[in-house]
Computed example of a mutant assay.
Amino acid sequence: MTEAIRKLFAVMPFLFGIGFIAPLTAQLMAYWGVDAPLGLSRITFGLIFGGAWGLYANIKGRWL
Rank of each mutant, 00 (worst) to 15 (best):
R6E: 12
Q27I: 07
A52P: 00
Y56N: 04
I48Q: 06
I18G: 03
G33D: 14
D35A: 08
A57D: 07
R42Q: 13
V34T: 10
I18P: 06
I48T: 02
A4F: 15
F16I: 09
G17I: 00
L64I: 12
I5L: 13
M12Y: 15
L40C: 03
M1W: 11
A57P: 00
G17V: 06
I5A: 10
G46D: 10
P23S: 11
A52N: 04
F49I: 04
I5K: 09
R6W: 08
F45D: 02
M1T: 07
L15T: 10
L64W: 13
V34Y: 15
P13K: 02
F16M: 08
L24T: 14
L64N: 15
G17R: 00
A30S: 05
G39H: 00
P13I: 01
Q27C: 08
A10F: 09
W53H: 07
I59H: 01
L40R: 03
I48M: 01
L40H: 06
D35M: 01
I21M: 13
Y56K: 04
V34N: 11
G19N: 10
S41D: 04
G61P: 06
L40V: 08
F9W: 15
Y31G: 09
D35S: 08
G17D: 02
T44L: 01
G17P: 06
I59K: 03
A4Y: 14
I48L: 02
E3G: 10
I18Y: 08
V34F: 15
P23C: 11
F9L: 13
S41I: 02
Y31W: 14
A10L: 05
T44Q: 04
P23G: 11
I59Y: 04
E3P: 10
K7Y: 15
G17S: 00
T44S: 03
L38H: 05
Y31E: 09
Y56Q: 00
A30G: 01
T44M: 06
A26I: 13
I43C: 03
S41G: 09
A4V: 12
A26D: 14
I18K: 07
L8R: 14
L24Q: 12
S41N: 03
A30D: 08
I21S: 05
L28Q: 11
F45E: 06
T2F: 15
Y56T: 01
F45P: 08
F20Y: 07
L15E: 08
L55A: 05
W53S: 00
G61M: 01
L38G: 02
M1K: 11
I59A: 03
L55Y: 03
P37H: 06
F20K: 01
I43Y: 10
G51C: 02
L38A: 07
M29C: 12
